[in-house]
Design a protein around this nucleic acid. Structure first.
Length: 287
DNA sequence: TACAATGTTTTAAG
DNA sequence: CCTTAAAACATTGT
């Protein structure tokens, strides 16, 4: 499930209680989620004796600072989740990491194991953080930044482009579909084929979908309204929820992921843009 | 059984 | 350098 709103929600499940110290860490040592850590138990074990002092997220990535030496980074992959269980909780199948504190147990579970666990020293972390791409809701994600990125990727299809974490940190499959549906662009539409006003609109829609998702899902994991594409996109025979539309939604693989769109509300420009065709990989004529 | 699933990375090829 | 496609990863559910 995890996109930026779900990451925000799960990060909250591990409460910051600095005086509640880690007494033990348990790792599913051979698990794929530890692929970037050579000795998981020893590596993560460095947080013993420290408390959880600070939490952050960046897109789909979650960061927890234990004591003053270590940031623990968690990525939820496709099926990861975080929970806070009672003190002395016993690990079950697919619990990849359990941090036992004096008062509770912080659990990272990931059945499919596409998630990741990383460690960062606090020293130098601020510099490292500053190099991450601008978050969509941050002040750095300006309209001109967005426009210049779109120009640089003029030949890219919008759907795969929205999934690029280096440009849209936290946007995943459902959010990308939601954005394109609201903005009225076919997922295969090329970034460079948008009119300037459409580009500006897309910038606003991306940010609106992010903030609404954070409000609805990121805080209490409420059910999104029926007016969102979200509620209809995986249903067979699902119909466009836009007032007065109701066209049957279409689904198709695009860039390796299933895209869902409304054939009536989301149009693909039929015009070919010569300036996008100078390089291989640029738009081909549409049939 | 076969396929698909809210993700990322790698590899190959045009 | 840019884009696309496919495969791989590991597990569960329909």
């Amino acid at each position: 499930m995890p996109e930026l709103a779900e990451a925000a929600y799960f990060a909250r499940q591990w409460p910051c209680v600095p005086e509640d110290l880690v007494v033990r860490v348990q790792c599913n040592g051979g698990s794929r989620v530890f692929r970037e850590i050579s000795r998981p138990l020893q590596g993560v074990g460095a947080i013993r004796g420290a408390g959880l002092e600070e939490r952050r997220t960046h897109g789909k990535r979650m960061f927890f600072r234990f004591g003053d030496r270590t940031w623990l980074e968690l990525h939820l992959g496709m099926t990861g989740s975080l929970s806070c269980q009672r003190r002395g909780y016993r690990r079950v199948l697919h619990d990849e990491l359990v941090i036992q504190t004096e008062r509770s147990s912080l659990v990272f579970r990931d059945p499919r194991k596409f998630g990741a666990i990383r460690l960062h020293p606090v020293e130098g972390f601020a510099n490292w953080w500053a190099k991450l791409p601008p978050e969509i809701l941050s002040r750095r994600f300006t309209r001109s930044y967005f426009e210049s990125q779109m120009r640089a990727r003029a030949g890219a299809q919008l759907k795969p482009l929205l999934l690029e974490q280096s440009l849209f940190p936290g946007v995943g499959n459902w959010m990308a579909d939601e954005v394109l549906w609201r903005a009225g662009h076919h997922p295969a539409c090329r970034a460079g084929s948008l009119e300037p006003e459409e580009t500006a609109r897309l910038w606003r829609v991306v940010r609106r979908v992010c903030s609404q998702a954070l409000r609805v899902i990121g805080e209490t994991w409420d059910e999104p309204p029926r007016s969102w594409l979200f509620q209809h996109r995986w249903k067979d025979g699902g119909r466009c929820p836009r007032r007065g539309c109701g066209a049957e939604l279409q689904r198709e693989k695009l860039g390796g992921r299933t895209a869902c769109w409304c054939p009536h509300c989301q149009r693909l420009p039929t015009m070919i843009y010569p300036h996008l065709m100078k390089r291989p990989g640029a738009p081909r004529p549409l049939d």
